[in-house]
Design a protein around this nucleic acid. Structure first.
Lengths: 238, 238
DNA sequence: CTGTTTTTGATAGCAATACTATCAAATAAT
DNA sequence: ATTATTTGATAGTATTGCTATCAAAAACAG
């Protein structure tokens, strides 16, 4: 059983029936992602999606209980893919610094996602992740969704990055916080550079991706606490 | 004219008529904030709010065009207050390091907000900010809202912090990105510590606020680029 | 304190959204 | 060829987000 299958198995229960197995299912997922990328999650709905793929709304409800579960499915799939790449990097023979840099590369440029016999382009799914990822967990039912495993792949990716950061700086007390910050902020800074440019400098020195990586690598310095500075920081802050 | 008035004047156009001037208006804003804190933005609506304050839905629509503008109003008010405190800190006679620390304090613990003759407790508005702030700008109409000044106070706060960071480390190339990261992530890490605890270490060593401040102060190290390390980073990343 | 303007309450209604139900036609599995 | 499963077509319901109307209440002005 390939790793790819493992990813899809772990997300299958967010759907009512496996969309990868049928033409309609694949069409729903692929076109749904395109539609969210184009209209945004709020303005997308199953009626419009049905019209776009030439099927009635009701047929889509046979695959996904509701819009929110559809988003959970897509995001869990995305982070599952990223997490799988992450594991490949971790189990490689490179040094841990190089592993970190490869992971940052992965977080700044999305791979394509193979979905049954169709392919979802990295740029399209990445656009959806940038704009909608936060909407999966900033809800009143986050705890219930979490309990059902909705964020397992996102949390796993965070843990993997946190472990790499711990190897890099074993004494740093906030590896998970820095990992989640890097993951979330690599999305946010891109969003800011497009929509609220005064909130970032990313993309103003060189290309967005290059600036982003340089900025994140700078953040790694936060993990390097020298004894003298540390005591000064502690004195002032606490 | 006090600074407080300036804040409210700058947000008044997100309402149809000034809610501070009437009993009903104040009741809408105060109870609306409480209701969002309790139910979340998605589950709150003007019908429920009307019931809670004993007024018909239609009366609320006389103050706010819709739910989203109501949220914009609240958030612009919050960041306006924070920004005003920020300016006070900047114009104080302290050194720039102390100014930064005061600002971080401000970002980790919300002040109460005086609203006409009622007061909105810091913890209540802060709970709303943590869970809903991102929903003001992660929308398809972000550019239109931005154009109408919806994020002026948030952007101003970011700029103020970025300026302090620039004073602290004049050569650091990403002061705005770090400022927006500190602002957004001080909210996120709190959210994570409550709902997705495996994504953070904040609150696991000491109190949430102490951990948060210590963690943010560690991030400031990202601004300190020594020539040797810098060249190594540049070589690897680009 | 009287007449006028503004604000509120009460109710009704409408278009869109998020689903659910039903049943026949098409497709796939045995 | 028969049976089971999937899809299409259509209809319908409850809720949401918002608008319209008009009389009662409150605020205000002379």
């Amino acid at each position: 059983m390939s790793n790819l299958e493992t990813v899809f198995e772990s997300i299958i229960h967010f759907a009512l029936k496996d969309p990868r197995q049928t033409k309609l299912g694949r069409s729903i997922v692929k076109n749904g992602i395109y539609m969210i990328a184009e209209l945004g999650f709020e303005e997308m709905n199953f009626k419009k999606l049905g019209k776009a793929i030439g099927s009635p709304e009701a047929s889509i409800y046979r695959y996904f209980e509701n819009k929110h579960k559809f988003l959970l499915y897509i995001m869990a799939m995305y982070w599952g893919m990223i997490d799988q790449h992450c594991e490949k990097i971790i189990h490689s023979n490179n040094g841990h610094e190089e592993k970190i840099y490869s992971t940052l590369d992965l977080l700044c440029t999305s791979p394509d996602i193979p979905f049954g016999n169709v392919k979802i382009p990295g740029e399209v799914i990445y656009a959806v992740v940038i704009g909608e990822s936060v909407k999966t967990f900033m809800t009143k039912h986050v705890d219930a969704d979490n309990h059902h495993g909705a964020f397992r792949t996102l949390k796993s990716t965070t843990s993997h990055l946190a472990e790499l950061l711990s190897e890099y700086s074993p004494d740093y007390p906030f590896p998970k916080a820095l990992a989640s910050t890097i993951i979330e902020m690599s999305l946010y800074q891109r969003y800011f550079s497009e929509h609220l440019p005064s909130m970032t400098d990313i993309g103003k020195h060189q290309s967005i991706v290059d600036d982003l990586k340089l900025w994140i690598i700078g953040l790694l310095r936060a993990t390097r606490i020298t004894p003298g500075e540390d005591s000064q920081i502690l004195r002032i802050s606490l």
